[in-house]
């Protein structure tokens, strides 16, 4: 097993107010592995992703990235090698744009300031639409998409970034079985190509089928490791147990 870490997080602590949302998180995401971040609602999964992507300023702690020829560098330096897939509910789908417009946005980072996407970018974006199973959707208006199709468009946009690390916030929430299978097949393919894929996941039933590694989070890292070892009933209980107190036990 390759132990090289694509992202290593040390002593990360994040707080919006007096109560920390994440407390002393030390964990890592291995290169070329498909990792699930698991935890109850409000456990800080999305916060973890957001601090990894520099949306939030942590109180303490470091996040370092390693890809092919860059080792232990901050996020700023390799932004274009990290693709982020936000929850598809985070945008207004009535925005006047076609599916191809949205996928093309994945190329913007490589183009840099002011430059416009060219034919090569368009061809690549169309290819990515083919990969997510929406080859005929290029000129379709985005408001006409179903939930599963929206998620696949977002995935195609991330693929168009040609990144090394893919970070996804609940890509399987609210999508049908067919879409779920398409997405997971694609993620597996990415991992086979040596890419690192990190997914915030909520469905405990499918963890064993879908993922290589798992990180249990409930404000702190409860457990982590390969699914075969770490995905135990004991760890699940420990992670989800605090949720049953309805948040009153902790303070």
């Amino acid at each position: 097993m390759d132990d090289k870490q694509a992202i290593s997080i040390e002593h990360l602590t994040v707080a919006y107010d007096a109560r920390p949302v994440l407390w002393n998180i030390t964990t890592g995401f291995k290169e070329g592995r498909l990792t699930a971040i698991i935890g109850p609602n409000g456990a800080g999964k999305s916060t973890l992703i957001k601090s990894v992507l520099n949306f939030l300023q942590p109180i303490t702690g470091t996040v370092a990235f390693s890809i092919q020829n860059e080792q232990n560098v901050p996020y700023k330096k390799i932004k274009n090698k990290v693709a982020y897939v936000p929850q598809n509910t985070s945008v207004d789908w009535d925005f006047p744009a076609t599916v191809l417009d949205v996928v093309l946005m994945g190329r913007y980072g490589h183009l840099g300031w002011l430059k416009r996407p060219g034919k090569r970018d368009k061809d690549l974006s169309k290819q990515m639409l083919l990969k997510v199973g929406l080859p005929t959707f290029a000129s379709r208006q985005i408001s006409q998409l179903s939930g599963g199709q929206r998620q696949r468009v977002f995935l195609a946009r991330a693929l168009a970034q040609e990144a090394d690390i893919y970070i996804m916030d609940e890509p399987l929430s609210g999508v049908d079985m067919k879409t779920e299978r398409i997405i997971m097949k694609l993620l597996k393919k990415l991992v086979e190509q040596g890419k690192t894929v990190i997914v915030v996941h909520h469905d405990l039933q499918t963890v064993e089928d879908y993922f290589d590694d798992v990180v249990f989070i409930n404000r702190e890292v409860i457990a982590q490791g390969p699914v075969q070892e770490a995905f135990t009933q004991g760890n699940i209980d420990e992670t989800y147990h605090q949720d049953r107190n309805l948040g009153e036990g902790e303070g």
């Binding site: 945008v91 946005m105 913007y108 980072g109 300031w113 416009r116």
Partner: peptide
């Protein structure tokens, strides 16, 4: 005209725009 693509992505999905390095 100059910042057409930057304004577009930040109007549609500002979070994503930030991850692109702008």
């Amino acid at each position: 005209a100059l910042f057409w693509k930057e304004f577009k992505v930040f109007t549609f999905d500002p979070m994503f725009g930030r991850t692109l390095g702008f």
